[in-house]
């Protein structure tokens, strides 16, 4: 379905021209900008590509497309370890925290992740540390019952750190393999809420380290995604990114800037609202979708 979108067509027509004139380069640039790659990253990628096409004396459309794809894949650091740290160590469950701004897909991602882990034969305990949003704990619990995981909840409006703490404690006692903690959506600009998130993590760490802190980014997000990633990484030391809603028309190009600047790998992608719509992030596949499929 995603083959030959407008962007892909535009780019391919450019790349099949005889000579690479300024207009052609402008169009290459615009195809990246149109995928939310951002001005700074786009400028740098196009510069490098210009140099390489000169050095290699590239002419054919196929070669140039391959070079561009290669630049983008390189920017995504394909060698990074993208495995999810979800295996217990000793008698402690692995602890995964899920964070991000409002409405990106944190709770859904917790549900989908639990599903994957349970299907893999692991036991999972969910922690509803979003005590703020209306029916947030109910939503997580529904996911839990769908996929076969218990959910620990606290009183509405209660302290999210104590729910998180209790979840890890109960998870350890019950000897589950993985504890997934869902947190409330919060904008990175809200100092009080970011402090609260830092506290949730510190309180959990009284029982041992958090193994994985996943930042959930919405693929429709534009340039603000980079600022989100920067601030969340400062506050809770993000170890992986989940890029959701890639089943829509948005390309999610902001993760290129995020990975370049912060080095935090995208680990998973969300491809729908169903329990099975979660997949590992594959740089090559992502870049192909971003550029439109080759002929």
């Amino acid at each position: 379905a995603r083959s030959q979108n407008a962007l892909g067509r535009g780019l391919l027509s450019v790349l099949s021209r005889e000579n690479l004139d300024d207009d052609a380069w402008d169009e290459v640039e615009e195809s990246l900008l149109g995928a939310d790659v951002g001005v700074a990253a786009t400028t740098e990628i196009v510069e490098r590509l210009r140099t390489r096409t000169k050095v290699l004396n590239t002419r054919s459309a196929g070669e140039l497309r391959a070079l561009l794809a290669d630049e983008l894949v390189t920017a995504l650091q394909p060698d990074l370890d993208r495995t999810l740290r979800s295996t217990p160590t000793g008698d402690r469950p692995a602890v995964v925290m899920v964070v991000g701004v409002n409405g990106t897909g944190k709770t859904t991602t917790c549900g989908k992740l639990a599903r994957v882990l349970v299907a893999d034969g692991r036991t999972v305990l969910l922690g509803a540390a979003d005590t703020f949003r209306a029916a947030a704990a109910d939503q997580l619990q529904t996911w839990g019952s769908r996929v076969g995981a218990e959910t620990v909840r606290g009183p509405e409006g209660g302290d999210p750190a104590s729910v998180a703490f209790d979840t890890v404690k109960q998870g350890t006692e019950a000897k589950v393999d993985t504890v997934l903690i869902d947190t409330a959506g919060r904008l990175h600009t809200k100092v009080g809420l970011m402090d609260e998130l830092g506290k949730v993590k510190r309180v959990v760490e009284k029982q041992g380290p958090v193994d994985e802190t996943l930042l959930v980014l919405d693929a429709t997000t534009g340039q603000n995604g980079l600022v989100q990633a920067r601030v969340f990484t400062e506050v809770v030391d993000v170890t992986g990114i989940v890029l959701t809603k890639l089943d829509g028309t948005a390309k999610g190009g902001i993760v290129i800037s995020v990975q370049r600047e912060l080095g935090v790998p995208v680990k998973l992608v969300g491809l729908g609202e169903g329990a099975d719509d979660l997949a590992p992030f594959e740089p090559e596949q992502f870049v192909d979708a971003l550029l439109g499929e080759p002929e």
Binding site: L33, G34, A35, D36, V101, G103, D218, A219, T220, T221, G222, Q223, N224, G225, G248, T249, A250, K251, I254
Partner: peptide
């Protein structure tokens, strides 16, 4: 529509 939306705003609004 979310104020954080990027380039996809036009596609989505049109749709």
């Amino acid at each position: 529509v979310d104020a954080m939306v990027g380039q996809d705003a036009v596609n989505t609004a049109q749709a």
